[in-house]
Amino acid sequence: MSDARRRGADHVRERWPVPGPGDDKYSRGVVGIIAGSEAYPGAAALAVSGAARAGAGMVRYVGPLRAQNLVLHHRPETVVHDPGDAAERLPRAQAWVVGSGVADYPEQDAAIGAAMASGAPLVVDAGALDAVARARASGSREAAADSVLLTPHAEELVRTLRALRHDVTLADVVGDRAGHARLLAETARATVLLKGSRTVIASPGGTVITLPEAPAWLATAGSGDVLAGITGTALAAGMVAADAGASAAWLHARAALLASGGGPIVALDIARALPGAIAAVTVEATAE
């Protein structure tokens, strides 16, 4: 049975991780990111920026040299890893973000496979959606359903459902976004965050979370990569997938609102506005 609920500031305030005097970079959460490519290096920089600005204690990046260089240009504190080395020996992380901007690169695909096999919490975006959904639908479920978050937009949801042999169209999804998000959640045994002006999160079992409408300026290239990084930080801090997705999407929208001021924004603006958005919602909890 579905349980459609809206989430807002109180939900985020109660759950978003705020460090204390006893914390260090490891206890705050290490996020591993396998994203970007030679063709799309920007996705790597945006996902890493989202995770770092959302409060990850450390971010590890796995990807090709061009993307590594761009990541280090924007976020020099990032620890970078060669995909071949990571596939052989996966670096330690509390959660992994995979798929944003990946292209045909066998070593990076192998690293994504290693992240899946590790059983660590997982955010799955863009180029990794089909492979991860098929693997989980066929019974390869090293990570529990409440620690795996698939993050498609509507077109990617259609493609992923078709890869799982569901005959759906974009019009079908637009007409029933919650129903088709639930369909993927049940088939892949994972939580699904369907991106859009009103984000929908569906978990296996039928629970649905509906977020308030986000600013329209958020519909810009790369904003989903930033969201993937934010969600990785939430999972690395120990949140379950549905709460991580709802909190991250709410903060993503709030950061966009702060960055926009009513005008256009680009994806990196969202990442830069995240500390202010988080401070505004957590300062009350910190004061208490």
Rank of each mutant, 00 (worst) to 15 (best):
A9K: 14
R13W: 06
R13L: 05
V18L: 15
P21V: 10
D23Y: 11
D23K: 13
D24Q: 08
D24N: 13
V30E: 03
V31T: 06
I34Q: 01
A39C: 00
A44L: 04
S49K: 11
R53C: 05
R53Q: 09
G55Q: 09
V59N: 09
L65Y: 14
L65F: 13
V71C: 11
D85T: 11
P91Y: 03
P91W: 04
V97M: 03
V98E: 00
G99H: 04
G101D: 05
G101R: 06
A103I: 03
D109I: 11
I112V: 14
I112N: 01
A131N: 10
R136H: 04
A137S: 10
S140R: 14
R141H: 05
A143T: 14
A143E: 08
S147K: 12
H153G: 00
A154S: 12
E156F: 01
A163H: 07
R165K: 15
D167L: 09
D167T: 11
L170N: 10
D172A: 06
R177N: 06
A185R: 05
T191F: 01
V192H: 07
V200D: 07
A202F: 03
A202C: 06
S203N: 10
S203H: 10
P204F: 00
G205T: 04
G206V: 03
W217N: 14
W217Q: 15
T220I: 06
D225T: 05
A237D: 01
M239A: 10
M239D: 05
V240Q: 14
A241Q: 02
A242L: 11
A242I: 13
D243K: 08
A246K: 03
L251K: 00
A256H: 02
G261S: 03
L268D: 14
L268M: 14
A271E: 08
P275H: 06
P275A: 07
P275F: 04
G276V: 08
G276I: 03
A279I: 10
A287F: 07
